[in-house]
């Protein structure tokens, strides 16, 4: 049984279909990249997988010991966060809340985990800083640390490198690669074809209204659409 299986998902807003007939599976240890044009519905798909939205039809199944609250999430940035008074530590710790049930304080283990994850991503020195005054790259790292506090089993990343400079982008992908190497399943939305092809094990390519391709990276690079898309990124296949 795979960790996550989507069967024939139809997605949309208020009856207007955005995507239909999406099926894919994710096994433990996979690194799935979701690619596609702006507005094709990638974020919508991710929100549906997270059960923030209900699909119009189709099924989302969890398996292989993955509970619904064991998915970490790095959202595409929202506006509200931009002027929010919150310290880095407060943000990172809030990742632990999903499994704390009715408890009203953080346990010692939670606090420890938050410190470890800040350490791991090199933001420990920023712990007391204000989240909104960090650079985009630092903010993304904070949100990644928060996601890591929620789980190490599966991470859903919505354009983790959006707005980062080349160096910060490379660093971000390197963090994700390390996490994947340590056994975390990764689902990532990315417009960066070079990085997608470099790091992913599987590719889901979304077109207008439906999925154009789902399979392993090597199959993708052999396929017509994969070759055309990779050409855009100047990648030799």
């Amino acid at each position: 049984m795979s960790q996550l299986a989507c069967e024939n998902l139809d997605l949309g807003y208020e009856g207007k279909t955005v995507l239909s007939g999406i099926s894919f599976t994710v096994n433990a240890g996979d690194y799935l990249c979701i690619v596609g044009e702006n507005g094709s519905g990638k974020s919508t798909l991710m929100k549906t997988v997270l059960r923030l939205k209900t699909p119009m039809s189709g099924k989302i199944l969890h398996g292989d010991g993955l509970e619904t609250n064991e998915i970490g999430y790095l959202p595409q940035q929202t506006v509200v966060q931009k002027d929010f008074p919150a310290s880095v530590r407060e943000v990172v710790r809030s990742g632990c809340l999903g499994r704390s049930g009715m408890r009203s304080t953080y346990s010692r283990a939670d606090k420890q985990l938050a410190e470890e994850n800040m350490e791991r991503l090199g933001i420990a020195p920023l712990a007391k800083h204000c989240y909104r005054e960090l650079s985009g790259g630092q903010q993304q790292r904070v949100l990644l640390a928060r996601a890591l506090c929620a789980t190490r089993k599966m991470l859903l990343l919505d354009e983790p490198a959006a707005g980062l400079d080349p160096k910060a982008t490379a660093e971000m992908y390197e963090w994700i690669r390390k996490l994947h190497a340590d056994g975390t399943t990764v689902l990532m939305i990315s417009h960066d074809i070079t990085a997608s092809v470099k790091y992913a094990s599987h590719i889901l390519h979304i077109g207008k209204q439906s999925a154009l391709f789902f399979g392993t990276k090597s199959d993708y690079l052999q396929s017509e659409i994969g070759r055309r898309y990779a050409d855009l990124g100047g990648i030799q296949t």
Binding site: K47, L50, R51, L52, E67, T68, N69, I71, G72, Y73, P75, T78, V80, Q81, F84, A86, E90, V91, R93, S94, G95, L97, G98, R99, S100, S104, T105, Y106, R146, A147, A150, T151, L156
Partner: peptide, 17 residues
Amino acid sequence: HKIFAITFDEDFASATG
């Protein structure tokens, strides 16, 4: 803490359970 979490990022809060 929960009020903080749903205020800061409601999507993340509900995504993680």
